[in-house]
Design a protein around this nucleic acid. Structure first.
Lengths: 225, 225
DNA sequence: TATAGTATCAAACATTTGTTTTAATCATTT
DNA sequence: AAATGATTAAAACAAATGTTTGATACTATA
């Protein structure tokens, strides 16, 4: 009768475990293969539950996907803070480095740390009905945060279009290493990105971007600070 | 009996027209929706031919896709030269600008000019069995060309990893505006990229990258030229 | 223990989609 | 005109996949 009281079945698992298991597994599979190429059967087989469980607990495939997004957003915001230990009073160079390191890790990292980031990255290239919500709740706030750092780096009164384009350059570089992974693997026989490679990539993108934005600031928009 | 003699049916079209029409239409649809999300029925309906025509002329869906890639590569290499009117003796700054302008146009441009580029961009994010061939025949040559420009810009004896990473930064920025189009549309109410926007994007990426690579050269790798 | 509500399961259903079949049509050659 | 080979067309087939059904098992409560 009470929602908080869990039943236990013969295997010692509560019914909620089935729901949770689907949620976890679906997050992995959706992040890896995208919404459309993921089958309910694959999720259920991998989670060890009956096919009908998805319909019972989430209504349909889209309902499951939305629940996964919600769950993963909640976890990501709680467990993986956006600013990797930097304060807003830190110099913008430091903040940009932290932003890029966080962004790259959330996309390229192994395991749970990248679950939400990869789901977001999937929405970029294969939008679902959730894209509108995703943009407003996640992508826009992130882009606004990045833009404020870039604006600060660009110095006095930069054109808003310059801010947008420079921010896009930063994000574009980060996403590339995820999207191009199959190509990079073939171009350079590089099998996978470990923590070492991810750090090197983040450092490069930060350096590259700071050089570029710094030059924009000097040659176009007056002095920084 | 002779291959060069075409039959004409009641509508005044030669049989080869059916093949050609499928090839053209399939190129559009594949470039727009990707291999997996494209249905033979959609192609045939859009091309105004019978469903069985694909099987008759190309064997199966994969055969059609491979024929499209081959055809589009042939057309692209013939009609849209890689170096937008620049000579290899031009200064590397000019060559990078030309490379980026060409690359961005081949990806973001409207109509036929972007057909092959978008098919390639699709292979990045949704690889097919053709990816190995695509990498060796198209992506690697292009990346090698870009790398040689970047290497020249970086000055004496740059580290090969720096060359690779800087080249990746350039390509990543370009691809972003294609992949992120649905997001950009929502973030800035920007409905589409016209020739004006494409030029602005190309100019920005070139400037951003030249600033960055220039700073790498000055601070890391000795003097240019 | 009996009952009611919840959860699980095997099976079936309906739709989509790549593929094949078989007949008809068309153009060329004899 | 007849025959032949090439092409087109409608229909059916088979597999994949999201969804639903109806029965069964389980747990908490009375």
């Amino acid at each position: 009768m009470f929602d908080t009281i869990k039943q236990t079945n013969v295997t010692g698992e509560t019914p909620a475990d089935t729901r949770k298991r689907i949620l976890e597994t679906a997050g992995e599979v959706f992040a890896m293969s995208g919404y459309r190429n993921t089958t309910i059967r694959e999720i259920c087989r991998s989670a060890g539950v009956n096919i009908a469980a998805v319909n019972y607990h989430f209504g349909n495939k889209e309902g499951l996907y939305l629940a996964v997004l919600k769950y993963r957003q909640e976890v990501a915001f709680r467990k993986y803070p956006l600013d990797f230990g930097t304060a807003s009073t830190d110099p913008p160079e430091e903040r940009l480095r932290a932003f890029i390191r966080s962004f790259v890790t959330r996309i390229l990292g192994e395991g749970e740390v990248s679950r939400f980031g990869r789901l977001m990255a999937r929405e970029y290239i294969e939008p679902t009905n959730a894209l509108d919500t995703v943009v407003e709740e996640t992508i826009r706030p992130l882009f606004t945060r990045l833009s404020s750092i870039v604006r600060q780096l660009l110095g006095r009164k930069p054109k808003e279009e310059t801010v947008r384009l420079c921010s896009a350059s930063v994000v574009g570089q980060c996403l590339y290493f995820l999207y191009a992974a199959p190509v990079i693997k073939r171009l350079f026989q590089q099998p996978e990105f470990g923590p070492k490679e991810i750090e090197a990539i983040a450092d490069h993108i930060a350096e590259f971007s700071l050089y570029a934005i710094g030059s924009f600031a000097v040659r176009k928009g007056g002095e920084k600070g």
